[in-house]
Design a protein around this nucleic acid. Sequence first.
DNA 1: GTGAACATGTAACGGGTTACATGATTGC
DNA 2: GCAATCATGTAACCCGTTACATGTTCAC
Lengths: 193, 193
Amino acid sequence: MDVKTLCLGVLSMGERSGYEIKKTVEESFHHFFRAGYGSIYPALAELERAGHVAGREVAQEGRPAKRVYGITATGRDLLGRTLVGEEPRHVVRSEFLVLMYFAHLLPAERLAAVLDTMIARFRDGLAADLDHYARTHDQLTAGQRFALGYGRTVVAAALDYLERHRETLLDEVTVSDASGRPQAGDALAAAGD
Amino acid sequence: MDVKTLCLGVLSMGERSGYEIKKTVEESFHHFFRAGYGSIYPALAELERAGHVAGREVAQEGRPAKRVYGITATGRDLLGRTLVGEEPRHVVRSEFLVLMYFAHLLPAERLAAVLDTMIARFRDGLAADLDHYARTHDQLTAGQRFALGYGRTVVAAALDYLERHRETLLDEVTVSDASGRPQAGDALAAAGD
DNA sequence: GTGAACATGTAACGGGTTACATGATTGC
DNA sequence: GCAATCATGTAACCCGTTACATGTTCAC
C-alpha cells in the first residue's frame, strides 16, 4: 500500500486538500502510517491525471486559496480493489530498540536521555490520541475505532514497559560498565571529557 | 540507522558470515528490524572496502564454504560514534491497520481472513520469541533483555487486542453492511458472486 | 534426482525522504 | 517587520526491496 492508496482512502471520507490530507493522516494514522508533502502532492497529481480524484480551486477568506480533491467513481472502485487485493503488511522499524539492544555500547547519560526522549514521545502521542479520540469517538466507524484502539493499546503497553524497566536497565548497564570490561561507551565518554 | 550500522552491531558480538547475520537479525531483531540479503551483502562489501570489517574464507565440512567477517578497531569506533550520534527513530508502518481503518470497504469474509492472518502471525512470532528467549536469556546483556522484552510485551498486547476485538469488529461491520448503506465491499462481493 | 537448507552475490526498480523554492495571511 | 500557520509544489538522492543468477551439500 502506497501513499496513493492512502490518499484515496482519506478522500473517501470527504473532500480535502493535500495539506488537509496530511493533517488527517497525522491525527488519525500517526501510530501506524505517515506521509510527507513530498509524497502526498505527487500522489494527488498522479491520481488526478488518472481520473481517480478531481481537484478544484477553493478561495478562502483569511487564508491562502487551496485546491481540494474529491474521489471519483473510478477512484472509489480502485480503492476497493486495492484494499481487497493487497496482503496486509505490518512493519516496525525501530532504531531506538536497536540502540537499546546495544545499550552497553552507550554512555549512561546518553542511554538515559534516549529513554527519556522515547518516554516523552509516547506520553505525548498517547495524550494527543486520547484527546482526539474523545472528540471524535461518537462519529467513528467500527473499523476506525478498532484501528485507533489498537494504536492506543499498543502504545500504552510500550510506554508502560519503558517506564517500568527504565531504572533497571540503567542500573544494570551502569554496573556492568563499572565492572572493568572496556566498552566503546567508556572510550567515547573518556574522549568527550 | 542503516543496514551497515546493523551489520557492525551484530559483528560486534562475534564473527559471522552474511548469511549468519541475516539469521541473527531474524532471531533477535525480528520485532523491530529486518534486513534482506540484498542489503546485507552490499553493506558488508562496503564496510570491508572502508576497512571497518575484515572477511576471510572459511571451509566447512558438510556445507558450502562461507566468508566470515570480523569487526575491526575502526569499525568498533564507527559503530560507537554512529550509535551515540543518531537520534533514535521508531516507525511503524502498518498497511494492516490502514485496512482495518477502512474495514467498512471490505467484504466480511476478507476482513475475517485478514484478522485471522495477523492473529496467526503474531501468535507464531510470539511463540518463536519465547522459545528463543528461553534458550538464550541467561547469556544476554541487560540491553538485549530490555529490547527483546519490549518486543515480546508489545506483540503480546497487540495479539491480546486483536483476539479480544475480532468478534466485535466483525459483528459491527456486518451489521452496518446490512443496514442498507451501499458499501464498496458490497459492490465487490456482489461482483464476485 | 529433487527439494530444502546453506551460501553469495548483482542490478534494476520503486518509492519515500529531504531539501529546496515560493507565496499568502494573520497576529504580535 | 517577523514568526507562525496555511498552502503547494519540484528534484535529487538514498536505500531497501525484488528479481535474477549461481553453486554446494544433505537427506529422502
